[in-house]
């Protein structure tokens, strides 16, 4: 099975209160891609991520992970292939120690305790928090909590990492740490974020959602640089892509803009 392929085909979803969150979303993500999902609040980003992982199911259309259609029956297969880091680390960390939290997935997979320890230690090392293994999650700082959340997913050895706002609520140093961490992963990555600087640095492809539809799907440089598109979708061109009004220099490209 090709675990690394994620595909949404004409997906619709409406919440019980009648709000149409997704209205005909289609895309295909291939092995090794880093794809950002951006959009204003309420554009449908989190709903889309939940549909990808089978936390909800489309009203119409289908979601595929590898060769498997995401249904109740295929959930174990889908969730083995995809790991999701939730927006709020406090929702993700519920065990008494960081180690127990990171070991939760491998234990559910039925591994023996020695294997569980090996997976957990390796995930803790990957995010650089081995020293926090015995700490209570609620006592960690924001950046440490985020790293621990990522480790809880890495310990399950997923092929695809899905993240909902990985830098939300972090101070600049912790944000930098998370970015460096994510840059080091070779997984296929799907990142929903309002942090367009992060998107610019980590994702080569960007999907822009607006009112439950895909407004744009293309190279990040092109999509984020399209001021009209950004404006239409309730977003803004990141500062790094804006030309200095004085000298015309654009920090992200390191070049003066053509019309400066």
């Amino acid at each position: 099975m090709s675990h690394h392929l994620v595909e949404a085909i004409d997906v619709y979803y409406a919440y019980p209160d009648g709000h149409h969150a997704l209205q005909g979303i289609s895309f295909r993500i291939s092995h090794g891609e880093s794809v950002a999902v951006v959009g204003a609040n309420g554009a449908g980003k989190s709903t889309l991520l939940m549909l990808l992982l089978g936390l909800m199911f489309p009203a119409r259309g289908e979601v595929r992970v590898g060769d498997a259609l995401v249904t109740r029956k295929t959930l174990p297969l889908v969730r083995k292939a995809m790991g999701m880091v939730l927006q709020d680390p406090d929702d993700q960390l519920f065990m008494p120690t960081v180690f127990d939290d990171v070991a939760f997935g491998p234990r559910n997979a039925g591994l023996d305790e020695r294997e569980v320890a090996r997976h957990a230690e390796s995930a803790l090392q990957a995010v650089g928090i081995s020293h926090l293994r015995g700490r209570a999650p609620f006592k960690l700082s924001g950046g440490e909590k985020r790293a621990a959340s990522i480790a809880t997913v890495l310990s399950m050895l997923p092929d695809i990492l899905v993240m909902d706002e990985p830098t939300a609520g972090l101070d600049p140093r912790a944000r930098r740490m998370v970015k460096d961490l994510l840059r080091g992963f070779s997984h296929t990555k799907i990142i929903a974020s309002h942090d367009l600087e992060l998107v610019w640095e980590l994702c080569e492809r960007t999907l822009v959602l607006t009112q439950g539809t895909v407004a744009a799907d293309g190279p990040t440089r092109q999509v984020l640089g399209d001021a009209a598109l950004m404006e239409r979708c309730g977003l803004e061109v990141p500062y790094g892509l804006r030309a200095c009004p004085q000298c015309g220099f654009t920090p992200a490209t390191g070049r003066p803009t053509a019309n400066a």
Binding site: P76, L86, F104
Partner: peptide
């Protein structure tokens, strides 16, 4: 949301301790 996080990590109704 906590329950969803548990399900995403393979929780299927059986709690596996240490």
């Amino acid at each position: 949301r906590v329950y969803q996080a548990m399900c995403l990590r393979g929780f299927a109704g059986e709690y596996h301790g240490g």
